[in-house]
Design a protein around this nucleic acid. Sequence first.
DNA 1: TGATAATATGAGCGATAGCTCGTGTTCTAA
DNA 2: TTAGAACACGAGCTATCGCTCATATTATCA
Lengths: 207, 207
Amino acid sequence: MATRPLTKPRKQAAQERSRVTVDALIEATARILIRDGFDKASTNRIAGEAGVSIGSLYQYYPNKEALVVAVIERHNRDLMAVARAALTKAAAEPLEVGVRRLVAAAIAAHRLDPNLHRVLAEQVPRTGALEGVEAFNQENYRLFHAYLEGHREEVRDLDLDLATFVCVNTIEALTHAAVLHRPDILSDQAVGTLGDEASRLVLGYLR
Amino acid sequence: MATRPLTKPRKQAAQERSRVTVDALIEATARILIRDGFDKASTNRIAGEAGVSIGSLYQYYPNKEALVVAVIERHNRDLMAVARAALTKAAAEPLEVGVRRLVAAAIAAHRLDPNLHRVLAEQVPRTGALEGVEAFNQENYRLFHAYLEGHREEVRDLDLDLATFVCVNTIEALTHAAVLHRPDILSDQAVGTLGDEASRLVLGYLR
DNA sequence: TGATAATATGAGCGATAGCTCGTGTTCTAA
DNA sequence: TTAGAACACGAGCTATCGCTCATATTATCA
C-alpha cells in the first residue's frame, strides 16, 4: 500500500538521554517559532537552537512538519485541559454561571501562551499534516454540545448542533481577536468586561 | 535612510501591453494559490502560468510577497464593495432589518470566492508586508461603528467601541467558519438559517 | 568484560527558491 | 524615419533548504 509521508515521531525514545533530546527539540521549535517566525524555523536552525545535531533531529522527527505538529499538540493539550476543567464544573451549575465560567476559561486558555498562539494562528500554514489541526476543536464541539444537552430546560428550543457551532465559534473568535489585536481589552482591569460582554452575547442567544 | 524591502509594484504600467502583463500575473497568482497552494506558488511558476517571462515579472513586482499582496488587495476590494453597499442601505433601515442585511452581506461576501478566501486564511502567513492585511477590517470597524451611532435609540446603553468589536468579530467568525468548515450550512436551503441565527445573536446582544 | 543496541554527530548532496542582468523587441514621439 | 524609452525575455547565479549516511560515542546486559 502507498505509504504517505510520516508526521509522527520516528522512534520512541527509550533511554533518558534521548528523551532529553526530544524535549530540547520541541522546546527549541517553539522558541524559534515565537522569536523568529515560521519561515526562519529551518531544521538546521532548530537543531542548533536545541544544541542537538541535525542527524539526531532526523532520528526522531521525519521532517519539519512533524516538529511543528508536536508543538501544536502540546499547546492544544494545555488548552484543552483548561477547557475540560471548566466544562466539568459548569455542568453542575446554572446556565448563567456556567456560561460565564466557560467564557472565562476560553480567555484564560488563550492567555496561556499568547505569543505561541499568535504565531500558530498567523504563520503556520494549514497544509499537509496541519490541515487537520482543527481536530482539537472537535472535542470542544463535543463537550459544548454535551453541555447544552445537560441544560435543555434552561435554553429555548434549539438545534443543538447549530447552537454549538454558533457558540463555540463566537467565544473562540472574540477571545482570539482580543489576544491577537486588542491587548488593551485583556488587561487585568478590562478582561472582566470582555467576559461580561461575551457571556451576555451567548446567554441572550441561548435563552 | 534605510529603505525597507518594497512591497508595492515597481513601476506603473504605461502601455496597454504591460497592463495586460500585470493583469495576467495577478490572475495567475490567484489561480496557483487556489489550485496548488501557497508554497507551490514560486515566482517562476507564477510567471509560467501567466505566460510571462520571469524577467518581466520582476519588472513589475519586486518579490513574491508583492504579488500576493496584490491578490489580497483585489479580493478585499471586492469584499468591501459588498460590505459598503449593505451598510449604506442598512443605515436607513430599522435595526432589525439592517442587522439582517449586514449579516446577509457578510455571508455573500464570503461566498464571492470561497476558495481564494480559504487559501488566504489558511496558508498565507501574516508576516512581513502581510502583517497589516487586517487593515481592511479597520474600514469595517469604522463603518459598523458609524452604523451603531446612527441607531443609538434602538440599542441599549453601549460602549460603542466594544460593541463594534463584538459584533464585527462575531459576524465575521460565523461566516468565516461556515465557509471554511461547514459548507452544508451554506447550501441554498440552509443559508437562511445561518443568517437567522447570526442576526438573532447580534440583535439580542445590542438590545 | 565484551558484544550489541541505542544514540549522537555533521559534512555535504541534490533540489529548488528568489532574483539579476545582458540582450532582444516593440512602441512613442519629434 | 529614427532615437530613445518602455517592455519582454530567460539562462543562470547565489543562497538556503530539507535531509542522508558513514562514522563515532555511550548505554545495556548476558
